[in-house]
Amino acid sequence: MEQKHTISVLVENHAGVLSRVAGLFSRRGFNIDSLAVGETRNSEVSRITIVVNGDDYTVEQVSKQLNKLVDVIKIKVLDDNEFVGRELLLLKVKATAKQRAEIIQLVDIFRANIVDVSKETVTVEVSADQDKINALTGLLEPFGILETVRTGLVAIQRGSDCVE
């Protein structure tokens, strides 16, 4: 059954590692939903969080093939509901002086922030899971969204378990 899987990958922080990982996905025919990279506390190690769409066979192959990359140190397929996942969204929406208050109200309900205001626009920042981000986007749609910028998902396991 096709579904989304979130994979946490620790890699050596070398030039070209990201292209190896991305290249592996394209040539083996795996579909990346989102991908986010950043350094860990150890500057020699980066973490890539990948969301992949596929069945159990696909996710097994993804992790086994990733494991074969010499630069890949560790892989963990995160169990659903066992992790906290967040995406960051920056959203620029049309806002006249009259509409601003209403937008601010919505932003407050979602515990999002206003990070920029101009005469005709408001820019909103929200960090949340995908559903919440989609909900806020939906509510702001009627005002006229000008642009959105969204990161891939980053995820961390709940409780004391770590991928280190």
Binding site: A15, G16, S19, R27, L69, V70
Partner: peptide, 14 residues
């Protein structure tokens, strides 16, 4: 060449 051979190498280095 490291980019070009990445799919066919166990590993490569520049």
């Amino acid at each position: 060449i490291t980019g070009a051979t990445a799919p066919f190498c166990k590993h490569n280095y520049l």
